[in-house]
């Protein structure tokens, strides 16, 4: 159904650190859910187009006019780590 390697790969893609126990539970639960979801893989969908939007809007465009934004103080106020007006992040490696 879904194996440990897949669970680890998906967790990495989603940037979720799971411990071994969580990984195990996740594998079982996802497998269980996918068993139900697999119903749609058996359906005959030949010639059926996908639906991305249920509304039929097109061309919702904005005029190129600047609007007032946030002050630097407001932009940064919820951040945990700020250096000289910038958001700080740990090293990249």
């Amino acid at each position: 159904m879904i194996d440990d390697t897949t669970v680890r790969h998906v967790a990495r893609l989603a940037r979720l650190r799971l411990d071994d126990a969580e990984e195990q539970v996740m594998r079982e639960e996802l497998s269980g859910i996918l068993e139900h979801i697999d119903a749609i893989r058996a359906m005959d969908l030949d010639g059926v187009p996908p639906t991305t939007h249920v509304i039929e809007l097109e061309n919702v465009l904005r005029a190129d006019e600047p609007r007032p934004g946030l002050s630097q103080e407001d932009a940064l106020r919820e951040a945990r780590a700020v250096v000289d007006g910038s958001f700080e992040v740990p090293r990249m490696d």
Binding site: V83, G85, S86, E88, P90, R91, M92
Partner: peptide, 19 residues
């Protein structure tokens, strides 16, 4: 804009972001 170095928390290795 991401500038490498210049962070404080993680020493000189940290990076800072300006949006």
């Amino acid at each position: 804009k991401l500038t490498h170095g210049g962070g404080r928390r993680a020493g000189a290795d940290g990076s800072v972001v300006d949006f």
